[in-house]
Design a protein around this nucleic acid. Sequence first.
DNA 1: TCACTGGATTTTGTATACAAATTAAATTAA
DNA 2: TTAATTTAATTTGTATACAAAATCCAGTGA
Lengths: 211, 211
Amino acid sequence: MTKASLYQQLKQDIRQGIWPAGAVLNQQKLSEHYQVSRIPVRDALQQLKAEALVVMAGKASLMVPPLTAAEAEELYQIRLQLEPMALRRAFPQLSFSLLGQAEDLLHRIEQDQHLSAADRGALNWQFHLMLYQASQCPHLLRLLHSLHQQVERYLGFQEISMNYADTSHQEHWQLLELLRAQQLETAIALLQQHIQQAGELLVAHLRALTK
Amino acid sequence: MTKASLYQQLKQDIRQGIWPAGAVLNQQKLSEHYQVSRIPVRDALQQLKAEALVVMAGKASLMVPPLTAAEAEELYQIRLQLEPMALRRAFPQLSFSLLGQAEDLLHRIEQDQHLSAADRGALNWQFHLMLYQASQCPHLLRLLHSLHQQVERYLGFQEISMNYADTSHQEHWQLLELLRAQQLETAIALLQQHIQQAGELLVAHLRALTK
DNA sequence: TCACTGGATTTTGTATACAAATTAAATTAA
DNA sequence: TTAATTTAATTTGTATACAAAATCCAGTGA
């Protein structure tokens, strides 16, 4: 277990609920679990803390942040502001070959039958990211990456993604065609609707759970 | 030099140019400079890295990121998306007492004659933040804080803030009055203009420097 | 001259040990 | 019983020492 991979592993294990929401992460427990000393554990935790993938719980202890509907809504609203911006700035640089690569991704999602919900989610995000990366905006991309990571924790609720998967996939195709047709503003409107819809579905689901 | 303060100190020293743009930060040099072992230095660097206040330079070494006009423009564009959102979400919660506190801040800025450019900048940001905090959006506030920290590094160029200080301050008063008059949309339009203007001024200055 | 290899040197990564702080528990007093 | 306070336990923070890796540079060859 090398340093970078410990950070990745810990992140993944938080996503997958091995360290569930609300759990206090103490360094010794983690160091024993991953068979490393506390030093690399500390390094990983510092990074995760800065990304809000773990939060302070008291004066010195860290915990996996609870998942609240209010925060999910907030995260989606932020994405709703930033992703259209990313698409707008990417647009002039979208080449035919890049759009082709994006199409390949969509084909792969369709063809690969035995994809887990998590895998399909990852590929969907890769589709978005492929478009956004053309924007050449390092800070924006970093923020979007970070936001997506946080949102990902909420998507453990399979019911949501199952229901929404088809609609979402269709919208990806539409988005691609609009971009090919140089219809930026329409594409952005679609993207906004796409994000908003996903956000509303998630938030509704979360509120239903707590009620 | 305790742990939290080492992080703060390092951040401040980067802002102030003690570790200038492009400088490679090696752990030993830092640990000697701050009279601590490398462990707390590593912790601080991990956090700063996650916030992009230091960036990788090669495979393992970290450096203070260079200041480029393109990145400044990008950061201001992101703020232009997020700060209006914060104001919008804060608006319903803006109480008279809170607006009063904001006014106090503006008075303090006017009265305190011997303020350094850095201090005035800090107070100005506190004004913005005071309004935004009413939004009760932890993630949004965290992002804005982080973005502001990055932008702050660019504001070492006194010429800019000097020229813009008066206009900026006036706009703060206008913003406050519009909010008191419940004119949210006008206030947001002003805020957008406020941010855009500051961004353009900075970017123009940076481009002039490199030319 | 330039690219490249090999080894020396520097720098980062990690483990262990100990100090400081926090957290939890137990005791006491109201 | 409850709240406050002291004490014990756990947990985090830091220093030092060593291992692993990355960087630098001289030497070689084209």
